[in-house]
Write a protein that binds this DNA or RNA. Structure first.
Lengths: 118, 118
DNA sequence: GAAACCTTGACACGACGTTGGTAAGGTTGG
DNA sequence: CCAACCTTACCAACGTCGTGTCAAGGTTTC
């Protein structure tokens, strides 16, 4: 039964109830619902809500921006298009350079991981 | 000498001069500068500007959102934090799960690449 | 040296995003 | 059964985004 209702969750996370609903609409946190439709926040969600605030504050990022990051994770076509644009490849995903691209992306992730471990 | 000045670039890309400066402020396209500080757009930038318009239109994405994507690519700390939040890992980048994370990321890129080739 | 460019900076304005409040109505628990 | 909660939906205030325009000043070209 360790699930808080929206006002209690607001209390312990620092978000307002209004914002908790907004965060949900942004596609960032899905809480489960009671039979009657009440939002119920478990410890997992509460923790994510807290770290979300830290994340936004620490890097001066907005909910909409993180919402876009979420979109990037869910829409692979979009992610592919964005990646292609940033790499400035002439956007023809059907030749040998694709392999180069993948290799580059993986090296980049390696570097990113290294950075995260510092 | 194949470099256009800002008004000429605006002409051939469909952006307004004002928007070209805005795009630059968003961190999306850096043009080189003449000794006097005039922006000079080479063929590469012109092409990127055109594909940028297509990208934004096709996926209904805003400049600010893509600006955030750009930030994600330049600020590794931010990218790592965002990744960590989305994976809902308890944010301790110093144990075995890091290896899992990397593997997951690479598999994801593989899927992304597959999607791009369809 | 004047016309036609370029620069940065500011003000402006409509559309929309963010955040709060409130209203109308359903749910829960003592 | 009533107080205290929850839901969605709407109105309002304020900020940001995207865009134009203008001003004050430097540059290029003829």
């Amino acid at each position: 039964m360790d699930a808080l209702t929206i006002n209690e969750a607001a209390e312990t996370t620092g978000w307002s109830p209004r914002m908790l609903r907004y965060v949900e609409r942004m596609g960032l946190i899905e809480s489960r619902r009671s039979p009657a439709g009440y939002r119920l926040y478990g410890p997992e969600e509460l923790q994510r809500l807290r770290t979300l605030r830290e994340l936004l504050a620490e890097f001066d990022v907005g909910l909409a921006e993180l919402g876009f990051a979420s979109r990037l994770r869910r829409e692979e076509q979009l992610a592919a298009a964005v990646d292609a644009w940033f790499e400035a490849e002439p956007a023809r995903p059907d030749d040998v350079e694709a392999a180069d691209w993948l290799r580059f992306e993986q090296e980049k992730h390696q570097r990113l991981l290294d950075a995260a471990l510092t």
